[in-house]
Write a protein that binds this DNA or RNA. Sequence first.
DNA 1: TTTTGTTTCGAAACCGGTTTCGGCAAGGGT
DNA 2: ACCCTTGCCGAAACCGGTTTCGAAACAAAA
Lengths: 354, 354
Amino acid sequence: MQQEGLGVKQRRITIADVADALGVTKGTVSRALNGYSDIADSTRLRIQRKAQELGYRPLSHAQAIRTGKVRSIGLVLQINAHDAQRPFLADFLAGVTKGASDEHWTLTVSTAASDADMRDTLTRLVEERKADGFILPRALRRDYRVELLRRLEVPFVLYGRTPDMAGCPFYDIRGEEAMEEAVLRLAAFGHRRIGFINGGLEYYYSALRLEGYKAGLAKAGIAYRPEYVQEDAVTVAQGHAAGERLLGQAEPPTAVVCAVDMAALGLYQAIRAAGQEPGRDVSVIAYDGVPEGAYAQPPLTTFAVDSRRAGERLARLLITRIRGGHPDTLREFDRAQLVVRGSDGPPPRPDFTN
Amino acid sequence: MQQEGLGVKQRRITIADVADALGVTKGTVSRALNGYSDIADSTRLRIQRKAQELGYRPLSHAQAIRTGKVRSIGLVLQINAHDAQRPFLADFLAGVTKGASDEHWTLTVSTAASDADMRDTLTRLVEERKADGFILPRALRRDYRVELLRRLEVPFVLYGRTPDMAGCPFYDIRGEEAMEEAVLRLAAFGHRRIGFINGGLEYYYSALRLEGYKAGLAKAGIAYRPEYVQEDAVTVAQGHAAGERLLGQAEPPTAVVCAVDMAALGLYQAIRAAGQEPGRDVSVIAYDGVPEGAYAQPPLTTFAVDSRRAGERLARLLITRIRGGHPDTLREFDRAQLVVRGSDGPPPRPDFTN
DNA sequence: TTTTGTTTCGAAACCGGTTTCGGCAAGGGT
DNA sequence: ACCCTTGCCGAAACCGGTTTCGAAACAAAA
């Protein structure tokens, strides 16, 4: 346990120490440890053993000066007011650092307040070689970060999808499947008037989730009614407003699917303001799995995403990409997990209007 | 591999380029740019100008190999279930990266799931020189991270205070002042039975805030009643439970100060469960300024902390510490900002019991 | 036996910076 | 006129690794 006290501040074990201990040269040690084929197996074994015994760990920034690779994952977070990713941030970071440190990589994070800021930050990190590649969270409909990094020939991996996915590694959770399943579940309860509150318009996921909602309606044999769809609600306030627009109609929905939990919490307020009770008078199924949903009244039925796993998978994908993996093989999907709580059920009375 | 694409991928400007352009040696350029005194001012100016013109930026990891400093701030986040810091994480990170990048530093973040994990992660980052120093968020009553880094002789700066502050740089917000002010404010409204729901016991801030609460009582001339104090509530659920214990008493408080917003939101539930209305029957003042508080019914009166500023100040303090600043001069305080919303006011009827 | 390969490793250059050392020239004192 | 500083900068070593090049040792082929 690293006692080694009183300020002696013991010198690190360098590659030269390992070489000297074995009577070989630094070059031999380096090649042995890096898997070059011109090293006898017996020698490689001796060197690996001794390195292990001495506790030798190469300094990544010393390697970087020759190789150009610093073994670091870059992550630039967009910080804006309506930021639905915040609740998951800690879990997401935990996942990324897990995936990174398993391979002895590290995570370099920065933040950007605007698109221009994002560009600058990315280019700066690339120019100063602070990261070998980037995880791009929250894929946009038209993602300028992708264009930038492609031009700079810097590896990246997307969290989410974007229309033009050619040669673009990504990890994503099929939110559209969840939306479809939500509609079908509500239809099975007997709902026929099912609304949809969508998430952020600038993100591609909102396009996908809308498709999922429509697919669900189609499978359930319910006609699509544009007035039942509200776009661009990612906060409680926006969900509240969207809910008011939905419930203020002559023939309001008896159930609403929300693309984002926080919007659903706002919808709760709108439902109550209309003198009704969420879950009893209006069913709600949402998506994300934020902790607040579990404490809401009634507890929110939702499709939970595993942000930690997402972070870990993204880190792994990026690392193999940087190591030369072909982009088209680096694509991964997961499903959101339905968590049944108390906000959905049969409609208050059977509905024959549709 | 590394096919070196058809993109010209122009070579970086190195220190040698600058030197050649001016007919001087690398050493001269280096010393000029790093403020050595044995360089003529005229030469220094020429070199600075040319470096600027060419867009030369030294590679921090190339510098690091000689200097041992990578110009990176380390941040290891403890990830556990009852994590009150999550809401602020994005803002906090934004602040830290702002403070860091202003000085051309970067932020290396990692996570730890347990104390042992935290130790390992810190030592690993130190051994591999991934960070020159650390920001330690959430100071504990007895902070083993401080002991560890002291022993390793690695610079750090604490977010919060800890009992033994000798030679320990820190930034903190005086939560105790806020608690005191909250009590006085409630007393001014006419409350005499003021409860207190404290935060996480393992953190030193809870000791301080309890003192602040007591100081407020003393100033208001109200006797301290131990049964009015609940400890260790940082989540909605814990706040709910603490609220039940408070309200279940024969002579329940008419106002409650909460050390943590999330606990206050739980207290709301307990108040309603007791058939009363928060803000009208029981006043609540809390601390943190989480966004959920603004959307709660009634909106929560609270002392908001500026996490972004905290992150930025901490980054600056750490950097000057690493540059040799004396620890005892690196101490900074801020105040929390009272945000008056709708959860506090006069007691329902005057109280003469005390 | 000589030639030709192979395998394996040492020697040294190299990456992009920093830092030490010493020498030259100008200035100051006597 | 001489010595001694002092200011300024070039030369070269150095940091901890990686990578190239070539040669020694041995085996296989001629």
